[in-house]
Amino acid sequence: MTAELPEQSTPLLLEVEGLHVAYNRVVRVLHGVSLAIREGEFVGVLGANGAGKSTLLKSISGMLKSEGGAVTDGSVLLRGNDVTGAAARQMVREGVLQVMEGRYVFPDLTVEENLRMGAFSRSDTRTIRKDIERVLGYFPRLVERLKLKAGYLSGGEQQMLAIGRGLMARPKLLLLDEPSMGLSPLLVKEVFRIVREIRENEGLTILLVEQNAKQALAVADRALVMENGRVALEGAPADLEKSAELQELYLGGPRTG
């Protein structure tokens, strides 16, 4: 299915067309997903466990291959260039970075070293110090923990560090995978407040995958609902919120594996 785009003047940043993805050649997870994102947009992807949301992000960020997944059909275009199946390394250089689900920080490295690693793919290394300060501006909690090993941070702090580390790469398109996972409601609120702040200040394009529909709909310009590896619904957050279908998908819909 073709994604319906809102009337906007900014150019297209990302186009995903008819994407099919399978793991280990047999477990088929995506069955023809299409979406398009304009520069500066904030798009939310909702859906139950196993709907294929994370897989969608990984097939954009290049993190699919190391998990045994591969694009079997369809394409991913970045600014019109075909980047289907490109490695994470290339995508990070192109400005596409995924903040992985489950807070993948470097537990044995200090918070500061974690942030420095975020800038790994950048060639302009002189501004790294300054960027660390800029990133810490969003996460004041991390300032006093700079010399602490990231493994000793709380769950919320680790999530913040993971997002902050992603920002250190100065991405154009930030892919956020379930930032609310395992966090208390209060922390979820804080993380989403910060994400919105980042979006406003950095002029980033964000693709957010989230099970917490309420929070995602509150921050996104536009949202998709995925089910069984397909896009089931798409629209403005306000419309989706009222949609009976969304209610059904979330509350009564079949859980998929």
Binding site: A88, V99, P107, D108, L109, E113, R116, F120, A169
Partner: peptide, 19 residues
């Protein structure tokens, strides 16, 4: 630092573009 990072979390390193 990159080597320590890879040994700490291979996946996180990969997601940041580490070869």
């Amino acid at each position: 630092l990159t080597m320590r990072a890879v040994s700490s979390s291979r996946k996180a390193a990969e997601s940041l573009g580490v070869p």
